Amino acid sequence: FNVFVYVGKRLWDIELMAIEVDNLYQAGVLDKDLYMQAKLVLRKEHRIEEELNQENKSPY
């Protein structure tokens, strides 16, 4: 849809995109297949980003 999302942190970007995809689906802009594909990609990227953040946290 030619939309750029940037709120300063990749994890936040992914969360905002997930909310926007939900809104687009509820408004009837996205069909169910495209909605499900987008949600799966965003869920995967969110998990990856959380894992990277956990690895980069130092206990010191």
Results as ranks from 00 to 15, higher is better:
residue 35 Y to C: 05
residue 35 Y to A: 10
residue 28 G to D: 07
residue 6 Y to N: 15
residue 9 K to R: 13
residue 23 N to Q: 14
residue 35 Y to M: 04
residue 22 D to G: 10
residue 15 E to F: 00
residue 33 D to C: 03
residue 8 G to Y: 07
residue 25 Y to Q: 05
residue 18 A to H: 04
residue 30 L to V: 08
residue 8 G to D: 07
residue 18 A to V: 04
residue 28 G to H: 07
residue 16 L to N: 11
residue 10 R to G: 03
residue 18 A to M: 10
residue 26 Q to E: 15
residue 15 E to G: 00
residue 8 G to W: 04
residue 32 K to W: 05
residue 20 E to K: 13
residue 20 E to Q: 15
residue 35 Y to V: 05
residue 18 A to P: 00
residue 12 W to G: 01
residue 16 L to F: 08
residue 33 D to A: 14
residue 23 N to W: 07
residue 17 M to E: 08
residue 6 Y to P: 03
residue 14 I to W: 00
residue 18 A to G: 03
residue 23 N to S: 11
residue 19 I to Q: 15
residue 34 L to D: 14
residue 11 L to M: 14
residue 12 W to T: 02
residue 29 V to Q: 08
residue 27 A to P: 01
residue 20 E to D: 15
residue 5 V to Y: 02
residue 26 Q to N: 12
residue 11 L to T: 14
residue 6 Y to W: 13
residue 31 D to M: 07
residue 11 L to G: 13
residue 13 D to A: 03
residue 9 K to W: 04
residue 18 A to R: 10
residue 34 L to I: 12
residue 6 Y to D: 15
residue 31 D to V: 03
residue 14 I to R: 00
residue 20 E to C: 11
residue 24 L to W: 06
residue 16 L to R: 12
residue 31 D to T: 10
residue 31 D to Y: 11
residue 19 I to F: 11
residue 17 M to K: 09
residue 16 L to E: 12
residue 6 Y to V: 11
residue 16 L to H: 06
residue 25 Y to N: 06
residue 27 A to D: 06
residue 19 I to A: 09
residue 8 G to N: 12
residue 8 G to H: 11
residue 26 Q to C: 02
residue 30 L to S: 04
residue 24 L to F: 08
residue 19 I to S: 09
residue 34 L to R: 13
residue 28 G to V: 05
residue 17 M to Y: 00
residue 25 Y to K: 08
residue 33 D to L: 05
residue 13 D to Q: 05
residue 13 D to T: 06
residue 28 G to T: 07
residue 15 E to L: 03
residue 14 I to E: 00
residue 21 V to G: 04
residue 11 L to I: 15
residue 9 K to C: 08
residue 11 L to H: 13
residue 35 Y to P: 05
residue 26 Q to G: 08
residue 30 L to G: 02
residue 10 R to N: 10
residue 28 G to Y: 05
residue 5 V to S: 00
residue 19 I to K: 13
residue 20 E to I: 15
residue 22 D to Y: 06
residue 30 L to Y: 05
residue 22 D to M: 10
residue 10 R to Q: 11
residue 27 A to W: 02
residue 27 A to M: 03
residue 26 Q to P: 00
residue 16 L to G: 02
residue 35 Y to I: 01
residue 13 D to K: 04
residue 29 V to A: 10
residue 34 L to K: 12
residue 8 G to M: 12
residue 5 V to G: 00
residue 23 N to R: 15
residue 21 V to M: 07
residue 31 D to C: 06
residue 19 I to C: 06
residue 15 E to V: 01
residue 6 Y to M: 07
residue 18 A to Y: 02
residue 32 K to M: 07
residue 18 A to K: 09
residue 31 D to N: 15
residue 17 M to L: 11
residue 13 D to W: 06
residue 17 M to T: 03
residue 32 K to Q: 12
residue 26 Q to S: 09
residue 10 R to T: 14
residue 34 L to M: 13
residue 25 Y to D: 00
residue 17 M to N: 01
residue 19 I to E: 14
residue 12 W to C: 01
residue 29 V to G: 02
residue 27 A to R: 09
residue 18 A to L: 05
residue 20 E to M: 14
residue 26 Q to Y: 08
residue 35 Y to R: 11
residue 13 D to E: 07
residue 5 V to H: 01
residue 20 E to Y: 13
residue 33 D to E: 14
residue 32 K to C: 04
residue 27 A to L: 03
residue 20 E to H: 10
residue 35 Y to K: 11
residue 33 D to S: 14
residue 14 I to S: 00
residue 28 G to R: 08
residue 18 A to T: 12
residue 29 V to I: 13
residue 27 A to Y: 01
residue 15 E to M: 01
residue 11 L to Y: 14
residue 15 E to W: 01
residue 10 R to F: 15
